[in-house]
Simulated scan of single mutants.
Amino acid sequence: MFLQLFRYRLKCLLRDRLLIFWTLVFPILLGTFFNMAFMNLNNDEKFEPISAALVTGGGANDAIFEQTVHQMSLGKDRLFNLKTTASKHQADQWLKKGKIKGYFTDGPLIRLYVQETGISQSIMKTFADHYRQNSSAFADIAKANPEAIQKGLLDDLSQQRNSVKEVNTGGAKPNNVLNYFYTLIAMACLYGSFWGNKEVCDTQADLSSRAARLNLAPVHKLKLFLAGCCADLLIIYGEILILLAFLHFILGIDFGTRTGLVLLTAWIGSMLGLTFGTFVSAITRKGENLKFAVLTAVTMAGCFLAGMMIGDMKYLVAEYVPALAWLNPANLLTDAFYSLYYYDSLNRYLINLAMIAVFTIVFGFGTYLMIRRRKYANL
């Protein structure tokens, strides 16, 4: 009997083209627009060499700095696109016309001339300061210990060594755009609440004629409701799988290597969306359109706080209102997917999953309490 109810309910639900559009087609379209907008956002910014000039002199001290600047202007990873001139007036003209960001003079006192402030100018200042510091240090050492020059110790000091090693906390590289797509999946899961809303509306006899006919049928109301919820859950999960496949195989979105846990998260997210919809629909005694509006508003507010519209919003909420981050199902789902992608440890993922399970149980039990004894004086 239950399987028959499930099959009939599934056929009935699949005929609702409007809900299929909002819960499947709309997220796919939105993911396509996201990909078009963010396709170049994650590309590493290419460093452009700084247009600079050097006013050359004739002293021995000048030659050292001149050689250093020329070395920094060679090769593919050069720091400067260098122009040289013996005329300070010529360098001033280049600077005023915007052909260079600044220029150095290599006299006994190294000077930097710029017309405006910016990143390029700051890099040039840092380069000049670094040279002055090293030059002063080498001069002091040579004066105090002339043997250091003969032993080549100053050459050792001139070698730059980096003692800091960058270590990734997980097996994947940080990605600037993944959070947008993960919030999209969270939105699609919570849009499954529309199916839950439809199930409750088709069960409450005071909301539709279809529900009135179902309540007159010689079938236990709870069995009918559970069969409908199982059909809803199958549709929601199927839509999420289609969305995941589209994002991964068509748009190239990376979900990491834990495919099984990604699918498990999608399943639990589908259950969350379904129970969220049944709960809100059960406690809202007005018409179906109002319930639909409430579900849409709550879902989009949660996705906004999870960083769907403004990427930094997720981190601002976590920093200033951390309790809200844990009470936002959309954020929990987003964080669960990102934890699977980024972290080696499953601790953070399991915490998110536990919170999602708590919400699902609360919504499901709340729905049961609201509809289990609802009776009508007449139909």
Rank of each mutant, 00 (worst) to 15 (best):
L95K: 06
Q90I: 12
D129Q: 04
A128I: 06
G118M: 01
L112F: 03
T105F: 05
S120V: 02
Y113N: 01
K96T: 09
L109M: 15
G107Q: 13
F127V: 13
A128R: 14
T117Q: 00
T105W: 14
F127E: 09
N134V: 10
K125P: 05
I123N: 10
A91E: 13
V114C: 03
G118E: 00
F127R: 08
I110R: 11
I110T: 07
R132P: 07
F104I: 06
Q133N: 11
D106C: 14
Q115A: 12
K125L: 04
K125N: 08
R111Q: 13
Y131I: 00
Q133K: 14
I119M: 03
G102D: 04
G107I: 02
D129L: 12
Y103C: 09
L95T: 08
Q90A: 13
K96S: 07
Q121Y: 10
H89E: 15
G102T: 03
H130L: 11
I119A: 07
S122W: 00
D129A: 04
I100H: 10
Q133T: 15
D92C: 01
Y131V: 02
Q90K: 13
I119W: 02
T105N: 11
D92Q: 01
F104N: 09
K88Q: 14
P108L: 06
N134S: 13
D106Y: 00
G107K: 06
M124A: 02
M124H: 04
